[in-house]
Amino acid sequence: MAATSMAAALAASLPVPSATAAAPAPTYEAIPASMAKVIDIEADIPLASVQLDALVVTKIIKHAREAPSSTAHGLLLGLDLDGILEVSNSFPLPQHVGDEDDKSSKSSARHQASMLRSLKEVQADDSVIGFYQATTLGAFFNQALVDTQAIHQDKLRHGGIVIVHDLSQTARGNASFHAYRLTAAFLDAYKKTNFSTTSLMSHRLTFSSILEEVPLKIRTNPLLSAFLGQLAEPSKDSPSSATIGGSPTSGLGPSFSVLDLGTGGVTRNLEQIVEAVDNYRTEEGNLSYMSRQIARERAKAENYVAKRKEENAGRVAQGLAPLPEEDVSRLFKIPAEPSRLESLLLLGQIDAYGKSLAGSASMGLVKMYAANSGSDV
């Protein structure tokens, strides 16, 4: 889905202040001192961490596995209490492949409004506090994520958060969830729509300073913990439980995924790195071409100004009136400096692919050494 489509759909579904007639100011009772630290009316308590419910974890994993592509995304629902963003529920957003941006954004907006209305009718949490995004090999830097998060930080309390779920890590048995939000410096440059070289230097922006990570913890209720504990315990009475060496196994069954050397994943990771580097070189080539165009137009304008000054100096020496100064911007169309945001995002993708490759390659190297030593026995 295009960046404008997803951002427009979220902007249409989020609450917008209605322009109605001014009503008489209501009166409120003072909040008791014992509740003042818990109920953060003015959002004075800074966001310290994100608490993800286990139900939301299973929903995100299920949606990411069943989605036709690796870009599954959805909304997060919950509440902000005492600086902790509690995510209690979520629901997926539809994916429109091949549709027009206008139609897909309207369809997504209708779906979101219908889901939020249904949740409110059943007395469930219907407050949007962010969104989640599935990714592969840790490369989640893209224009759609930045645009969507910028809308959330502009309209939601405490700016909302984005939770990134890495499918490649989950396939290896490690459920990867991280919470992020845009930094204040990047958000300031984004609102000004200025990602020129001067703006990047003044805001001290690099690909690593676009997002800041928020501490995240997963909460499980006692019932779920008891269920998982029961599954992990060996059962002698169950007729379906197989025995290995005379000892009963657990209800989960054996898993041999850790024995996979993971060579296929390394190959795919290298292909992604090569593709990202090619995209970055293409983008840098376009920026270089635009910079040369700007330099040529500026040189023409400077030569014209210098020639006019020299001509006016000669006229003054002859006792003639100098020629009027003309607006150089009208005579020479000097294009604006191109945005370097895409270059930053591509550098972030290359960095993420590199870190994923380092982790998978080191793990695969240890497994291959172990397999080689075991084959000699």
Rank of each mutant, 00 (worst) to 15 (best):
A3S: 13
S5I: 08
P24A: 14
P26M: 07
A36F: 07
D40P: 00
E42G: 15
P46T: 07
S49P: 02
V50W: 01
Q51M: 15
L52E: 04
D53H: 12
D53T: 06
L81C: 09
G83I: 02
S88C: 07
S90H: 04
S90F: 03
L93G: 03
E100Y: 11
K106F: 07
H111Y: 09
R117W: 00
L119G: 06
G138T: 02
N142F: 01
L145G: 00
V146M: 03
R157G: 05
H158D: 11
H158N: 14
G160E: 06
T170W: 12
G173C: 09
F177N: 11
T183E: 00
L187M: 14
A189G: 03
T193N: 15
S202Q: 11
S208Y: 05
E213F: 02
V214L: 11
L216R: 00
R219F: 11
T220Y: 15
N221G: 10
F227P: 02
A232K: 09
A232P: 04
P239T: 06
G251L: 12
V266Q: 15
N269R: 12
E271A: 08
G285Q: 05
N286S: 10
L287S: 00
S288F: 12
I294L: 06
A301S: 04
R315E: 05
P324Y: 13
D327E: 14
K333P: 01
P335K: 10
R340N: 05
E342V: 09
A352W: 04
Y353K: 02
G354I: 06
N372F: 15
